[in-house]
Amino acid sequence: MSGSQRLLDVGAAIWAAQKSHPFVTELAAGTLDEAAFEHWVRQDYRYLQDYARLFAVAGTKARDEETMTDLLGVAHSVLDTEMDLHRSFAADYGISRGELEATEKAPTCVAYTNFLLRTAYEGSLAEIAAALYPCMQGYLDVADHMAELADEEHRYTPFIELYTSDEFRAEVDWCRGFVDDCWDASPGQQEAMEAVFLTSAKLEYRFWEMAYTEEGWGL
């Protein structure tokens, strides 16, 4: 069994919980409250800034030119393409780039990004691979599930199309290969990879909950 599949098997219950979360099912149906989606856009924009940093730091830890190029390339893609698409989503709801950048991270977003960056700076390349995997594979799997649930086009169809696109599938395929390479090259770190993966996956689930409840600091 490949390392990427082993991690997915370990996280199967979390994957099932994500797919059944009301944010996911209501977005698929087109009935999700706009305020919840706007909250997701704002928070995910801030999240992506640090997700790009995760790839950039990973690139500095890579020991071969091809892996370094791939990791830094993903960091650039997140900053140049995915965040631009988030700005487009935001503009549809009257949210400016300045407002996105000024958004205060909700507690769950703080917890998730802090975990990713701590893993980036303190962990091995194998642990970083496990930390970044739930986001990429999770969004593809959840979006595929949304596409199956959706009966017709609606205001959230562009979200589903973004994360089921050929371009995104290619990124996820690369990510799986990266995880597999790290798993095979670092047998002594496989237990640590599982632990990091599960924490990251749980935070992915909590991110949906954060957006759905419009979580804030209450201050």
Rank of each mutant, 00 (worst) to 15 (best):
V179F: 06
D166A: 15
E26I: 09
D144S: 08
G3K: 02
C175R: 03
Q49Y: 06
H154W: 05
D151G: 13
M210S: 05
A90C: 14
L48T: 09
R169K: 10
T157F: 01
D33G: 07
D144Y: 05
A143I: 08
I128R: 07
Q137I: 12
E99A: 15
A16K: 15
S186I: 09
T199K: 13
A170Q: 08
A28M: 05
E66V: 05
H145R: 08
A36E: 05
I95G: 03
T213I: 02
Y133A: 02
L48E: 12
L149V: 12
D33L: 06
T25G: 03
T108I: 03
S96P: 08
M1L: 13
A75S: 10
H154V: 06
R176S: 09
Y139K: 15
N114I: 03
D184P: 01
L140E: 06
A130R: 09
D64E: 13
R42S: 05
V142D: 13
T213R: 02
H154Q: 09
F207D: 00
A131N: 13
H86L: 11
A201V: 07
L117K: 03
L8M: 10
M1H: 13
Y205T: 00
E214C: 15
R206Q: 06
A147V: 00
L125C: 08
H39C: 04
H39D: 10
L71R: 00
Q18D: 03
F178L: 08
A195T: 14
V142Q: 15
A90R: 15
G30C: 11
R63C: 15
A28Y: 11
D9K: 04
D173A: 08
E101M: 09
A36C: 10
E104F: 03
E38P: 01
E34D: 13
V74E: 08
D166P: 07
D9H: 12
D33T: 06
Q190F: 12
V24M: 10
A28K: 05
V179K: 03
K202S: 04
S88W: 11
M210D: 04
L149M: 14
Y212H: 08
R176M: 02
T199M: 06
F168H: 11
T103I: 05
A185T: 13
A211C: 14
H145P: 00
T157S: 09
G216W: 12
A29P: 00
S20A: 11
M193W: 03
Y51G: 15
T81C: 15
C109D: 01
A28V: 02
Y205K: 02
G216N: 14
W40R: 02
T60H: 03
A56K: 07
Q190C: 14
L71T: 08
F159M: 04
L100R: 07
A211S: 13
E191M: 02
Q189L: 14
N114Y: 07
A90T: 12
A17F: 05
H154Y: 07
A58F: 03
A170L: 06
A91T: 10
T164D: 11
L27Y: 10
